[in-house]
């Protein structure tokens, strides 16, 4: 087995930004016949190349529009990179913010099974973890209520509980720890800290440098889709601070 959890090999991601969004067939055909289908090429990521060792907590830093979320989506397999490839060793679990991806008509309990299934876990596994998830999310009373009646805090808690209790190999956190009340925020940070012992790899995006410093031991810095620094958190954070001055 390799010592790496994720290998990002020379990844480039190109988007065709069409001038206008064409939603109807009629528009499309007219524009095509007129030869007006023009695209602006835009490279959200270019030649990004790095490796993440198992058990590392990597902070991904960069200004807005640097390509952080795109990079996470490429790593999660949602975007297929235009160039290069991503090799993953282990199961990736992205944390859903505000319950995006839950089915609102489904109850909390049903959503736990559904979301675990989406992540590729088996029913037996979820059966075992079910009580822990409910307990951690503090939703014992509301677990049979449809998600649409949940508050945003409840959805966040449920999403966080599922993603962390099922013991993923690689956990992706994109700006998620800033939601929820202070109490749950502390609890979830503590949970992530405790997961380090079980050798979980974490990719973490946040605009709060303090939080990144607290949680991560490594970091990478993106600027305009290119990797400009990678290494220990303190070094990279110093460069980032320099940039944001």
């Amino acid at each position: 087995m390799s010592n790496y959890a994720i290998e990002v090999k020379n990844v480039g991601m190109k988007f065709n930004l069409s001038q206008e969004k064409l939603d109807s067939l009629k528009e499309y055909v007219i524009k095509m016949l007129k030869g007006q289908l023009k695209y602006n090429e835009f490279w959200a990521l270019k030649n990004v190349d790095f490796k993440v060792e198992k058990g590392d907590r990597v902070g991904i830093l960069g200004l807005n529009g640097a390509g952080k979320s795109t990079l996470l989506k490429v790593i999660a397999g949602v975007f297929k990179p235009t160039e290069g490839e991503v090799v993953r060793h282990g199961r990736i679990v992205p944390l859903l913010e505000l319950g995006a991806g839950f089915d609102s008509q489904y109850t909390g309990a049903e959503n736990i099974y559904l979301y675990s299934a989406v992540l590729g876990y088996s029913k037996e596994f979820v059966d075992k973890k079910f009580d822990e998830i409910v307990k951690f999310a503090e939703l014992e009373k509301f677990i049979d209520v449809p998600i649409k009646n949940y508050s945003s805090g409840m959805k966040t808690r449920l999403g966080f509980a599922i993603a962390t209790q099922i013991e993923p190999d690689i956990l992706i956190l994109d700006e998620v720890l800033s939601v929820g009340d202070a109490k749950f925020r502390k609890k979830s940070e503590a949970k992530i800290m405790s997961m380090f012992k079980s050798n979980v790899t974490v990719l973490f995006v946040s605009h709060s440098l303090d939080q990144v410093k607290r949680i991560c031991n490594k970091a990478i810095l993106l600027e305009h889709g290119e990797l400009i620094a990678a290494g220990d958190i303190d070094e990279v954070a110093a460069i980032y601070q320099e940039k944001t001055k």
Binding site: K73, A76, G77, V78, I92, P94, L96, A100, G101, F102, V118, L119, G120
Partner: peptide, 9 residues
């Protein structure tokens, strides 16, 4: 769409 945007399946 919510799922597709987040998780590979």
């Amino acid at each position: 769409a919510g799922m597709i945007k987040k998780v590979y399946v």
